[in-house]
Every structure is written in structure tokens, then in C-alpha cells.
């Protein structure tokens, strides 16, 4: 079986931020339940609350507005840098990933657009933690936890994203419809132009995410 859970290692941040797991799920059947669980966990008290929050300690993203591996990993890196420097704009490094993806500074908008919704059918899940040799969870453990939470199929990140990206949604969120380069290409939507347009949209959103911290 191919390794579907992505495992990234960052040497230049704090130990508890050095490992990042990414998984893409297609055909997700229980998004509404997951969302309810996330909402409920936030207000659970005591040890039970602690345990539940730990259990679902992931960034749960709707995969449709994500264009590529580079797009999500750019957001992850910027969130790691903010966490490492103690300059998070949101509560956790996980919510910071969502905030970084959204071009505006509105936190609840970033959750609405990039977070899981009750109708999501493809989910991108990210977990930031310590490396295994510093007490972090092993890949098998993370995969297992995810399978308990999500009813769906873990799929290859690159190939899966190619199927689920909603390019019109991306253009809307990043306000690209009116950009001269993009509108020139979408005016003549033959196959080679569509490919070029996607490449360009991907470049524009990756760059926008990378430089969000100096945009406002």
C-alpha cells in the first residue's frame, strides 16, 4: 500500500512544531458529525474536554479551495513561523493555517471558507507536532486516529487535489477574476489556456499566502 499520509520535517522551528502530517480524504460521509464534534469539544470542561480536544487536535480543511501541495505547505510554513516567533493571530497553529490561507484578516471568514463544513466531502487534515523521537505520535498512530474520526477514503495528496480543487471557488476567494492575466486566459477557455490559467492561479494563490503577513 502506498504511503498516503504525508510526513514533513522542519528543522528550523521549535521541537513541538517540527513534524507535520497531512492527509487528504475523499468521499467523506460524516462531515456534519465531525464539525459538531469540533464545536462541542470547544466548550467541554475538565479532563473529558481535554481528552476530546486532544483527540481532534487537527486542522480540518475543506479541500476544494486548495490548489496544490505547494499551496497548503506554504500556508503551513507561514503558520509554523508565526507560532515559532510567538506571533500567532489565532489561538493555535492549526487555526493559523486557515487564517493564513484566507486573503482577508477576518478569522471567522477564514474558518467558514477554508474549514470543514457540514457538507464537505473532501477533507484535508493537518497535524503539527513533535518528531517521534521527541515524544510525538508515529505516522501509523496518526493515520489510525484519523480513521476513527473520518468516514472516507484516504487518497494521494497530489492526485486527489487534482480531482477536488474547485478553481472557480479559488478565483472567487482570492479575487482573481478581474486580474488582467487571468481574465485574458479565461476569455478563451481552450485546453491549453485552461492548463495555463490553473498554473497561474496556483502561482498567484501560493504567492498571496506566502506574503500575507506583509499584505495589510
Amino acid at each position: 500500500m502506498p504511503v498516503l499520509l504525508e510526513h514533513l520535517w522542519y528543522a528550523n522551528v521549535r521541537t513541538d512544531l517540527q513534524t507535520v502530517y497531512i492527509a487528504l480524504f475523499a468521499n467523506v460521509a460524516n462531515a456534519a458529525a465531525i464539525r459538531n464534534r469540533i464545536v462541542a469539544a470547544a466548550s467541554l470542561r475538565g479532563e473529558e474536554g481535554e481528552r476530546e480536544r486532544n483527540e481532534i487536535n487537527f486542522a480540518f480543511l475543506d479541500a476544494r479551495p486548495i490548489t496544490s501541495r505547494l499551496h497548503i505547505s506554504t500556508a503551513i510554513y507561514q503558520a509554523l513561523v508565526a507560532a515559532d516567533q510567538g506571533s500567532l493571530r489565532t489561538k493555535t497553529v492549526h487555526s493559523e493555517i486557515l487564517w493564513t490561507l484566507n486573503p482577508s484578516n477576518n478569522i471567522s471568514e477564514s474558518i467558514k471558507r477554508f474549514g470543514i463544513s457540514s457538507t464537505s466531502t473532501s477533507l484535508l487534515v493537518v497535524h503539527v507536532c513533535s518528531p517521534v523521537n521527541a515524544g510525538g505520535p508515529a505516522p501509523a498512530e496518526v493515520a489510525q486516529r484519523l480513521r476513527f474520526i473520518i468516514r472516507g477514503d484516504m487518497v494521494d495528496l497530489d492526485a486527489g487535489l487534482e480531482r477536488v480543487t474547485d478553481w472557480d471557488l479559488v478565483k472567487k476567494y482570492y479575487k482573481l477574476q478581474t486580474d488582467p492575466v487571468i481574465s485574458a486566459l479565461s476569455a478563451k477557455p481552450d485546453r491549453s489556456n485552461r492548463e495555463k490559467e490553473r498554473e497561474l492561479v496556483n502561482e498567484l494563490v501560493v504567492s498571496a499566502v506566502a506574503m500575507k503577513c506583509v499584505m495589510s
Partner: peptide, 22 residues
């Protein structure tokens, strides 16, 4: 970074932005 972004949006070929740490 802003100048590069402006170029990207204007169809001027420049390197894309990959990270900013001010």
C-alpha cells in the same frame, strides 16, 4: 514581495513568492 506580487498579477514573469519572514 509586493512588487513581485504586482508583477505576477500583471503578466510579468518573475519568481513566485514562497515565504516571508519579516
Amino acid at each position: 514581495a509586493r512588487a513581485l506580487m504586482k508583477c505576477l498579477k500583471s503578466g510579468v514573469r518573475v519568481p513566485g513568492i514562497r515565504m516571508v519572514d519579516v
